[in-house]
Amino acid sequence: MDGGSIEIGTPAFRRSALALAAAGFSTFAVLYAVQPLLPVFAEVFGVTPAASSLSLSLATGLLAVALLIVSPLSEIWGRKPVMLASLLAAAVLTLVAAAMPTWHSFLAMRALAGLAMSGVPAVAMAYLAEEMHGRAIGLAMGLLVSGNSLGGMSGRLLSGALTDLYGWRVALAVLGLMALAAALAFWRFLPASSRFTPHPLPWRAVPGTFLGHFRDAGLPWLYAEAFLLMGGFVTLYNYIGFRLLAPPYSLSQTAIAAIFVVYLAGTASSTLVGHAAGLLGRRRVLWLAITVGLAGVAMTAAESLIVIIGGIVVATVGFFGAHSVASGWVGRRASRDRAQASSTYLFMYYLGSSVAGTAGGWFFAHAGWPGIVGFVGGLYLAALAIALRLARLPPRPDPA
């Protein structure tokens, strides 16, 4: 099954890993760059804080829905063309958004950019599953997730710093130009698919290609992992700022924003854990990564600021490691229509972010930080139980 596939250490592996890491970096930098700018939008456009959040939520919401549409298109048009079109469109729309004079026109560009961005996360995992050798998929997926996490962190930090110096329009324009450069690098370096041929896909059959994955013994559980893990992780980050802004810590907004630097720990862990999964097997590694995340969540219940920050680092390491393993497992588990399998995983991933991230606010309002620890801990315990079940799952289509 792995004949002609890309091996670790080859020029093709280095080119594909670089191209996809750049694509992930660009996509998530542009997606999350607006998060630290919400107060700026509220002031400049005269909107409420809730309305300012639409600049992010519209993009992520439409991205999630578009994942279910774009992946079938890649079966028809090909993996690389769809991802390249996604990167170019997102870059151009970000540049246009930076010049929009009104709030509603700005939101329209952000919404369209969210739609455009869906091409990379919807298709990249399928590309790796098809083109990489079984021994290389874990490391390649880890590098992809690393690019995603680095992009999310850098987009937030860079947009905030540039806004302080030159204003939000310049900040978004710079990120748009960076995204355009990443698209050109992607076009130059990513090898064209050699183990996948575009084929006609009757649209009447598309719902069946998605539903067919739910008849598999393992994929629905991996989709549940996406919902639980991302839901818990986003909840932790959504509300830790409220705790650390209040006494006895009373940290500044700048210090709170700097917490995103711990995404670097996630960058490293996604690559290392993904590689370990390729060597030792996903079923041996997934539950360990979730256990690490659970330990980090428990550490944040402490009163010591050092222990709390340490807990956030540990939880970040566990989350990115588990996500790297689970997402890579989806591509290997699906015997056909891998793009649809991957996009369903990501749909559940973003759905968990939205649903659990909001539900966590109820626990915080009624029980404070212990409520968050209990809520996120419950999500991670459920994810751990699923991982232990997956560890006993018979392999298909190839040993994991």
Rank of each mutant, 00 (worst) to 15 (best):
M1K: 12
L388Q: 11
V145S: 14
V120H: 07
T163V: 09
A391R: 15
F227C: 03
T163F: 05
F196T: 05
I76H: 03
G361T: 12
G3V: 09
E303P: 06
V330L: 11
G114K: 01
A382G: 03
F242H: 04
A19T: 07
P200Y: 00
T300Q: 07
L288K: 09
W103R: 01
S324R: 12
E131D: 08
V292G: 06
G368T: 04
A205H: 10
A23I: 04
I8E: 13
V145D: 12
A122E: 01
E303M: 10
S194E: 15
L280M: 13
A385C: 14
V65C: 00
A90S: 15
G78A: 08
G378S: 12
S86K: 04
V355E: 08
R333I: 06
V314D: 04
V292C: 13
I309D: 08
A33M: 14
A179E: 07
G360V: 05
L305M: 12
F227G: 00
F25W: 08
A182S: 15
A12P: 00
T316Y: 02
D2M: 10
L73Y: 00
Y263E: 11
S105E: 14
A265P: 03
A51V: 09
E7Y: 06
S194A: 15
H275S: 05
A183I: 04
V355D: 11
P11G: 04
P394L: 10
G147K: 02
L172S: 08
T291Q: 04
M153A: 14
L294Q: 00
D337T: 06
A385E: 05
L67Q: 02
H133S: 15
Y380H: 13
P220T: 01
P200W: 01
T197F: 05
A341R: 07
T271I: 05
I386W: 01
T27K: 02
A22L: 15
G241A: 15
M100F: 03
R156L: 09
P220Q: 03
G241Q: 09
A301N: 11
S86H: 02
I306E: 14
A334I: 04
A124V: 13
F375Y: 15
P72T: 00
A181L: 15
